[in-house]
Structure formats: structure tokens, C-alpha cells
Amino acid sequence: MDFMKYFDFLVWFPENVSTFGAELDHLFEVIWWIDVAIFFLTYGLLAYFLIKYRQKPGVRARGYHGNNLLEFTWTLLPTILFGGLGVYCDGAWETTKNSNRIPKPDVEIEVLGKQFNWVFRYPGADGVLGKRNDKIRTTDNLFGIDPSDPHGKDDIIIENDLHLPINKNVLVRLSSVDVLHSFFLPNFRVKQDALPGSWMKVWFNGIKAGKYEIACAELCGASHYNMRGTITMHSLDEYNTWYDTQIKGKAEQMAQAPAPEAKPAEAEAQAGEHHGDAKH
């Protein structure tokens, strides 16, 4: 019975390519079947009563006021069911979001939301992200990288095109330069709001190579719909090759022109919007 698969709403989900995604999808499935059961129970009773007890000549309604035992039962049962469900789902929540339980990261990057692009920072040749400070952020230095920290000089900054290795624990530090955004990786079952002024830890571990989409899930302005990026998952070798190219590119760029002096924020006020509006 092939059509039965449409009965399970999990078929509509985009393909899952992260480790904990399977666990989250499983929870969805558990609740789905509980819901299906409750649906048929309540709708079954409803339909039965509506047909059986429709007005009929000569038949009077029965004037019950209620029954305490029944009230007690249908208070207790949902409490146990829903309470159990809440406890059962907590494990997956802790795994995915509790920052104290994040597994030891293999790759650490930073992600910034900015109207209407995703900006990524990799540590570069030295493998260390330079120190940053939100208070010195400018449009030319979105991460607020401390100019006196040598580790920051070789950091690689990329827009909208994220590359990562599969089967590695990725730790993302997430924030925003302007309004709220939400870092949404549908295939990885990752969603976390990006809050200006706070850095949030997000982690995941991709299990399948390929190119996937990044979306923004929090209304952030007119071009919110167009705040799209991509995430490409490589095998480790492929990733290292890609990363080496980026390091070389950065080295050449640094050799050619020293980083420009930071300009005041307002000077390029409109610059950030071009990408987002490109479509219209």
C-alpha cells in the first residue's frame, strides 16, 4: 500500500543529513502517531455522536450533568501522556541545544547575519580565529576583529557560500550585525536566531556530501526572503583542498593590499542592501 506513505507526514520533510536530525525526526514521528490516534478517537466520537444523537421525533435528550470519575480519568490520562512526551523529548533538546553538552568540535567557525547575507569567518592559515569585540564593529570589519591581534590578520571571510567537511563536529558561533535573523539549515534540522550583541553556540555534524541551502527564518526586512546561502559538505580531502585554496587566496590578497582603514559605519549605509535587492 504505497499511498500509505503520504499518511505519514514525515515524507514531506527535506532529506535529513545531520546526525541528530534523525533523532529529531523520530520525535516528530512519535508525536505524529500519537496525534493520529487522538484524532481518530475524538473525531470518531464526534462523528458517532453527531449521527446517533441527531434530533429524532419522540426521543428526548438525557439530562446528565456529568460524571466526576470520567472527568478525573480524562484529566489524568492526558497529563500522563503529555507529561511523558515532554520528558521523552527532552533528551534530544539537550543534545542539540544545550551548550554544555556540545561534543568536542573538529571545526570552529563564526557566522554573522547581516541584512541580507550570511557572513562566515574561518580561522585561516594559523588555525586560530582572531579576537573580536562587537563594540569596534564597522561595515568594513563586521566581526569587529581586534586589529592588534595577529591571529585575526589571516582570517578568511566569505559571504553566503559555506563549505564544511562531513562527519566532523562543527561548532558555529552565531550573531548578527543588525537585526534578528535566524540561521536555518533545513536539511540539518538546525535553526537558531542570530541576536545582535550576543554570540550563540550552534553545532551539527553532517553525514552526507552535497550542496544544501541556508535560509533566514526570522523576518529581517524587505529582502528577508532573499537571504539565501548555500552549504556544501565535502569529504575531508575535498574540504582540505578547498580550504587551502582559500588560504592561498587570502595570502595573495594580503600581499597585494593592506587591509583598508575602517570607515565609519554610516558611510556605506546602503552598501549592504545590494545583494538582497538584486532580484527585483
Binding site: 500519537i34 503529555f82 535553526k191
Partner: peptide, 18 residues
């Protein structure tokens, strides 16, 4: 019934803001 999905924070990760 749809509320129950969202009430579970773990399941809400994917469906929040959709």
C-alpha cells in the same frame, strides 16, 4: 494537536517560524 509538536522544543527546532 499541532500545538503538541511545537510544545516539544526539540521538534520545534525544525518547524519554528515555518
Amino acid at each position: 494537536l499541532s500545538g503538541i509538536f511545537m510544545a516539544s522544543a526539540a521538534v520545534d527546532i525544525f518547524i519554528h517560524d515555518t
